[in-house]
Amino acid sequence: MISIKQLSKSFKTKDQTVQAVDNVSLNIEKGDIFGVIGYSGAGKSTFVRLINRLEDPTDGEIILNGQDMTDLSKSQLRLERQKIGMIFQHFNLLWSRTVYENVAFPLEIAGVPKAERESQVLELIELVGLKGREQSYPSQLSGGQKQRVGIARSLANDPKVLLCDEATSALDPETTDDILDLLVSINEKLDLTIILITHEMHVIQKICHRVAVMEQGTVVEQGDVLDVFMNPQSKTTKRFVQQLNPQEGSVDELKEFITSDDHSEVVKLHFVGHNAKRALISDVSKQFDINVNILQGSISPTQEGAYGTLYVEFQGEPETIESVMNYVMSTGVEVEVIKHVE
Rank of each mutant, 00 (worst) to 15 (best):
L7F: 05
T13N: 04
T17L: 12
L26P: 01
K44F: 04
F47N: 01
L50K: 04
L50W: 05
D59M: 04
G60E: 11
E61I: 07
N65S: 09
G66W: 15
T70S: 08
S73V: 11
L77I: 12
L79V: 15
F88Y: 07
T98C: 14
E101I: 12
P106G: 09
L107Y: 03
A110D: 13
A115N: 06
E116D: 14
S119V: 15
S119T: 15
Q120Y: 00
L124Y: 01
L127C: 08
L130K: 08
K131M: 11
G143H: 09
Q145L: 07
Q145H: 06
Q145C: 05
Q147R: 04
D158A: 15
C164R: 13
D165P: 05
S169N: 11
P173Q: 10
T176K: 01
T176M: 02
L180P: 04
L180I: 07
V184E: 14
L190E: 08
L192G: 04
L196N: 08
E200P: 02
V203M: 10
V203K: 07
I204E: 00
I204Y: 00
C208S: 02
E215D: 13
E215K: 11
E215C: 09
V220S: 09
K235C: 06
R239D: 15
P246H: 01
Q247R: 02
E248Y: 14
V251A: 06
T259W: 02
D262W: 05
K268V: 07
L269T: 09
L269A: 09
H270R: 03
F271R: 01
R278E: 11
L280W: 07
I281R: 00
D283A: 14
N293Q: 08
T302L: 10
Q303I: 11
E304P: 03
L310W: 04
F314N: 07
T320F: 06
E322T: 12
M325F: 10
Y327K: 04
V328E: 05
V333H: 06
E334N: 08
V335P: 01
I338K: 07
